[in-house]
Design a protein around this nucleic acid. Structure first.
Lengths: 136, 136
DNA sequence: TATTGTTATACTCTATAACTATA
DNA sequence: TATAGTTATAGAGTATAACAATA
């Protein structure tokens, strides 16, 4: 059939992202996390001390929307809020958070490998730089 | 800074798609359309007669979610519903819909060109086939 | 003055279940 | 028996405005 949308990279980008997100969501649901939860845990695995606002800026999540997200992670025992001064809070991984992070790494590594395997070899190495050029 | 997410294609895919969508949304807002509205108009430009369910299957939109979408397009005078039998309705472009479609084509063509220009030349031609491999 | 954390709110998109009528 | 169109509803994600307290 002739699909008038088949040649539009923007359309393909949307469909590919949607397919990827729904598959990743399903895999992360097995450890009771959402994609944004997992992103936060991965970000907190770095060396830097970060506040809620810092995390939001890095992940492009509004400050206001970080609140329920971090509440959820805190209620699950994965992070703790520690005062930096009387205004800001450091968000740190708890011991349970570090355990969960290992599971996140296992799942995301396998997932990214599966994604790349689906791409014909001659195109594979071009995807990441092309995508990064579209938002970095 | 060291960003633990920088090397994940899935993450880059999400960020690139979000950036693309918000820019395209803004451009389409100038002609009072949403992205899914524009997708439907582009799809209806093909030769085939299509029902609401057909469109939903092509665009991966649930049957139930097609209803408000098509109601909106009908209220804007862009499409009409014409009975095929006593059960199904053909969705057809009205004259206003064909005019709007020209504007959609103008905007999306310019947009896709802009997108591609942001990608370094050596990666450019690989994006569409790589993305299509992730959902087709 | 700018920023942090927060509350409240609204809008969009998406997913599911159920129903009627027709193929 | 399967499908079309529809209604109702709920869950996510996301955006904005406002506020008090602190840098």
């Amino acid at each position: 059939m002739h699909d008038p949308l088949a040649e539009l990279p923007g359309y393909a980008l949307r469909r590919a992202a949607n397919a990827m997100m729904s598959e990743l969501s399903a895999r992360l649901a097995e450890i009771d996390l959402r994609i944004s939860d997992a992103s936060v845990l991965l970000l907190l695995s770095g060396e830097r001390t970060m506040t809620s606002s810092d995390i939001g800026r890095m992940l492009d999540i509004q400050r206001a929307n970080m609140v329920p997200l971090l509440n959820r992670l805190e209620a699950a025992g994965l992070i703790a809020r520690e005062p930096l001064d009387r205004k800001s809070m450091a968000i740190v991984l708890s011991e349970g958070g570090r355990d969960k992070l290992k599971q996140v790494r296992r799942i995301t590594t396998a997932f990214e490998n599966d994604l790349m395997q689906r791409i014909p070899a001659e195109h594979r190495d071009h995807l990441l730089p092309a995508l990064n050029a579209l938002w970095g």
